[in-house]
Design a protein around this nucleic acid. Structure first.
Length: 882
RNA sequence: GGACGCGUAGCUCAGUGGGAGAGCACCUCGUUGACAUCGAGGGGGUCGCUGGUUCAAUCCCAGCCGUGUCCACCA
């Protein structure tokens, strides 16, 4: 006997352990099984499960469980990302908190050892949390972006791209993060609006003939100015082009140059040019061969290129000092407060400094071309489609990708420098040495590049590196290209685009056929949840409170197609109740001897309700299958919810009760077997979404061969839909619904067993009434159902098909209420009749509308008029009685 | 500045060229019944605004208003 409710707390860990130890998460060995593979978006090893993970991984697990049940060789390959900056941050913070030596004091090797130590201790948190979510990943294939195999893949890719000229070293401005002391890519820069000002500075002309005014939001950069630009056609300044100003404070003469970059509409029309500290200015500098004077160090402090009194000052302190100096010199021409966008590091949160350094770059423009084409050709499709626009937009305007990071935690760049600065790129130090020997003719000391690669460089290889590439492993051959990638739109650029580029370049094939973009779970303010913002909701708390299945169903139902999700706890509670509902339906069946009958064939059932529910089950299975194939998760969840609650529990179980309690043993046995079968279908269809509760029910409701999770998906024939049974049960539900509605409206006491009379019934209706007499009496709580020549006095009539039914509630009737009801219904019909008449009276409508639409309206009119007549008659009788 | 969304019941959201739905909330009634984690019934929306296309527009098109996200830029 089942307990009254499902107990997730004890069942979840038990079931998960049983699944995992049975090997059910691994793809089948059956060589005939079609592969279906998903690689997990590897969570940061520092991470803990947040609600976005819960959504993303629930959807993946739904797909994997579904395809596994469909007989596919389903592989969901898990793993984690070493997450360069994030992890280094965490460990550094921990070191600081425990009073240890800092990273720099400790030295590179010791620090990296510490991080590995930390990883061994704490890196398993996220994967265990994925287990709590029920994720059926094949843990035997778990990978880590910094493990040996993936590191080998990274080196191979780097060396190959370098050989092909697609990775190169370049000196140019980068986004420099002065806190982490590393370059970051454009994507890691967040533009934030902050309070600022335009300071208007006058630069005196060198010949003393006047001054030129420039405006800046960053006064401190004037220390590195090497020109003032004006527009070539700007009449105000034409005569000054070629002259020089003497830079205040610094005393350096800098030329006034003509460049289109200067916008006559903005500010004074003259703009200071600081090639070393501004991306636009850098370009201007290149065009005019201007000196590039870097005035800051790696900490964004003023360096020795500036006058002595500025050296060592932080950039913001220097800003104040520069402004003060201009004021003192009488050259400050104004301060204009403004809000403007300033680049910030997405991890550090500090203002990014454009800074001139040597870095490694990937020629993304070249790699992007095949990746663009693959999506244009539909070899990879985005779901929903619209996201391909976002992808194209970025890919078509892609900039070189800065991949070197001045960090310690990550893939060390496989490049070595000779004493003369010559670079040797190789997969191993031995190879680099061999190359050097060839060049130098004798052995010379080499030093490896200190930098590591952007984390996304290794994640970009994820779909094939995890399957064993560059080895031609059986897994790679079987599971690559992967089928579906499920991820958030926030990492289309960071990750999806890079995987497309790398995958196509190194395997010649797209890394995945389909990219399902899931919604982003945002906080109440509509902001993206992020650890750094501290606004994450803990899904584990939700799991503790409502069970994992409730959370999963919520995520599935709400995933829709790429909208923001605002999580409501009430909703989760509702879906927990839904699980309980199914549980209790199973409990009811168990109490009524509904047990699985071996070899039972639903095609053979004779009872109307059984023929009907058989068709409903078939329709639902088709609906859920189609929805899951199309990744329309919300549709799948809705179909399941409706079928299980509104069809099986609300009606089938209720309709089965009289048979289960009756004396017709054949009907009873059939219904017991059928009810058990229907419940099995519910469990099967619901399993991908609610794996725990369904697996537990499966175990407790019959002798089974194995887990529900490895049982075949129901592929029920739509030929099982029986139109006759459907019409009959539809009629029955309508009849019962009408009676209930009238009883409630008329305030008939629930216990009152009132009689129902039927007038004008045809043969079919008469048979139905006879066949379902017991059911009607029970479900509508009636005393009797009988035919009558006319509705009895004081009865309340309603229309049921061609017949008129009437509830004899004379003892309870509220005349006024009934008059109101009838009048209202007549008005409704009148409105319908009028509108339909108008339509049918329109020659254009008759001529141009589709035939079936016209016919539909004719039928509507006839029905409305018949119904109106009956209601009118009833109202007339009512007035007589009254 | 560019791109992509969104605006439907009190709330969260589905949805369709031919009289608009769900869940929750609300109101009424009900518990010795598989389930109160429940059941029955009910109220509630000129489907953002204005035009256009059409026999017919909540749905298609244009404009506008409101709102959100992303990208770029701002001396």
């Amino acid at each position: 006997m089942l307990e009254k409710t499902f107990d997730p707390k004890t069942a979840e860990p038990r079931l998960y352990a049983a699944w995992e130890s049975s090997g059910a998460f691994a793809p089948t060995d059956d060589p005939n099984a079609q592969p279906f593979s998903i690689v997990i978006p590897p969570p940061n090893v520092t991470g803990s499960l947040h609600i976005g993970h819960a959504l993303n991984n629930t959807l993946q697990d739904v797909l994997i469980r579904f395809q596994r049940m469909r007989g596919k060789a389903a592989l969901w390959l898990p793993g984690t990302d070493h997450a360069g900056i994030a992890t280094q941050m965490v460990v550094e913070r921990q070191l600081a908190a425990s009073g240890n030596a800092g990273r720099r004091d400790m030295g590179r090797e010791a620090f990296v050892d510490k991080v590995w130590e930390w990883k061994a201790e704490s890196g398993g948190v996220i994967v265990n949390q994925l287990r709590r979510l029920g994720a059926s990943c094949d843990w035997s294939r778990e990978r880590f972006t910094l493990d040996e195999g993936l590191s080998a893949a990274v080196r191979k890719v780097f060396v190959t791209l370098h050989k092909q000229g697609l990775i190169y070293r370049d000196k140019r401005l980068v986004n420099w993060d002065p806190q982490f002391q590393t370059a970051i890519s454009d994507l890691e820069v967040e533009q934030k609006e902050v309070e600022g000002a335009y300071w208007h500075f006058a630069y005196p002309l060198e010949d003393g003939s006047g001054e030129i005014v420039v405006a800046t939001t960053r006064p401190e950069t004037m220390l590195g100015d090497t020109a003032v630009a004006v527009h070539p056609s700007d009449e105000r300044y034409k005569h000054l082009i070629g002259k020089c100003v003497r830079l205040p404070i610094v005393g350096r003469p800098v030329p006034i140059i003509a460049d289109d970059y200067a916008d006559p509409e903005k500010g004074s029309g003259a703009v200071k040019i600081t090639p070393a500290h501004d991306f636009n200015d850098f370009q201007v500098g290149k065009r005019h061969n201007l000196p590039v004077i870097n005035v800051m160090d790696a900490f964004a402090r003023i360096n020795d290129s500036a006058p002595p009194e500025y050296r060592g000052l932080d950039r913001f302190a220097a800003r104040k000092k520069v402004v003060a100096a201009f004021e003192e010199l009488g050259l400050l021409r104004g301060i204009e407060k403004t809000r403007h966008m300033v680049p910030h590091g997405d991890r550090s949160g500090v203002v990014i400094e454009p800074w001139l350094t040597d870095q490694w770059y990937v020629d993304a423009k070249t790699l992007a071309q095949p990746a663009i084409k693959a999506v244009e050709d539909g070899r990879t499709v985005f779901e929903p489609r619209n996201w391909d626009k976002t992808y194209f937009e970025w890919m078509r305007n892609i900039e070189p990708w800065c991949i070197s990071r001045q960090l310690w935690w990550g893939h060390r760049i496989p490049a070595w420098y000779g004493p003369d600065g010559r670079i040797f790129v190789a997969e191993t130090e031995e190879e680099a040495k061999a190359q050097a020997l060839d060049i130098y003719g004798h052995e010379r000391p080499l030093t490896q590049d200190e930098d590591v690669l952007d984390t996304w460089f290794s994640s970009g290889l994820w779909p094939f590196s995890t399957l064993g590439w560059p080895e031609k492993t059986p897994d790679l051959q079987r599971f690559y290209p992967t089928h579906t990638l499920v991820t958030g739109f926030d990492i289309i650029f960071f990750w999806v685009a890079r995987m497309m580029m790398m995958g196509l370049h190194f395997t010649g094939e797209v890394p995945f056929q389909r990219v399902v973009i899931n919604a982003l779970v945002r906080d109440a303010k509509g902001e993206k949840m992020a650890k750094t913002r501290g606004n994450v909701i803990d899904p584990l708390v939700i799991i503790d409170k409502y069970g994992c299945d409730a959370l999963r169903f919520t995520m599935t139902a709400m995933s829709g197609q790429a909208r923001d999700i605002k999580l409501s706890e009430q909703r989760i509670e509702g879906y927990r109740n839904f699980g309980t509902k199914l549980w209790n339906a199973a409990r009811f069946c168990q109490m009524n001897g509904c047990a699985r009958v071996e070899g039972f064939d639903p095609a053979t059932v004779r009872q109307t309700i059984n023929r009907w529910i058989r068709g409903e089950a078939a329709k639902t299975s088709a609906e859920v299958t189609a929805a899951l194939e199309a990744c329309a998760f919300g549709d799948a969840a809705n179909a399941l919810y409706r079928f299980i609650w509104n069809v099986v529990c609300d009606w089938y179980v209720e309709l089965a009760k009289p048979i289960l309690n009756g004396n017709d043993e054949a009907a009873k046995a059939e219904t017991q077997a059928m009810a058990a079968w229907v419940l099995d279908q519910c469990q099967l269809l619901l399993h991908p979404v609610m794996p725990f509760l369904t697996e537990e029910l499966w175990a407790q409701t019959g002798e089974r061969d194995g887990f529900l999770m490895t049982t075949s998906w129901p592929d029920l024939p739509l030929a099982w839909v029986d139109p006759e049974a459907e019409a009959e049960i539809g009629w029955l539900i309508g009849l019962v619904g009408e009676v209930r509605s009238i009883r409630a409206e008329m305030n008939v006491p629930p216990g009152a067993r009132i009689p129902l009379s039927v007038t004008g019934a045809g043969e079919a209706t008469r048979q139905r009434l006879a066949r379902h007499r017991d059911l009607i009496l029970t479900l509508a709580r009636l005393g009797d159902v009988a035919e009558a020549a006319a509705p009895p006095a004081g009865s309340v009539p309603f229309v049921i098909g061609e017949a008129t039914a009437a509830l004899a509630i004379a003892d309870f009737i509220d005349l006024a209420a009934e008059r109101t009801r009838l009048t209202k219904e007549i008005a409704t019909q009148d409105a319908d009749i009028e509108r339909t008449n108008r339509k049918l009276g329109n020659p254009d409508f008759l001529a141009k509308a589709k035939e079936e639409v016209v016919e539909e309206n004719r039928e509507r009119l006839a029905e409305a008029e018949a119904a109106r007549a009956k209601l009118q008659a009833a109202l007339g009788r009512l007035e007589t009685v009254g």
